[in-house]
Amino acid sequence: MNEHTTCSEDLAAEVRRVAKLARIYVSEDDVAQWTRDLGRILEYVRQLNELDVDSVEPTAHAIPVANVMRDDEPRPGLPHTEALSNAPAARDGLFIVPKIIE
């Protein structure tokens, strides 16, 4: 595993990078706090390195099933007003957001 992440300066940079990816604004205090937390947690989870898992298949699902599908049949959706009923901002049937520059 990535031993360099134990360096707290690197880890602080990682916290900032990851917070950006997760779209969460972080203050410097947050960075300090989460760097400490993440450091401890990562240190703890690194015990998984003790296990030899090279030949082990990963488990993504707790159940061994496949091919659960639906027929291509329409179903009623949400009434238009209910679709927008929780919108923080709506106009002309649209969800309104700050102007997107594409």
Binding site: M1, V18, L48, V53
Partner: peptide, 21 residues
């Protein structure tokens, strides 16, 4: 997010899935 991000996926997330097995 960290456990899934580029460069860490295999070491953390994938390994955890294998331990799950």
């Amino acid at each position: 997010t960290y456990a899934l991000s580029a460069g860490y996926y295999d070491a953390y997330y994938l390994r955890a899935q294998k331990v799950r097995t």
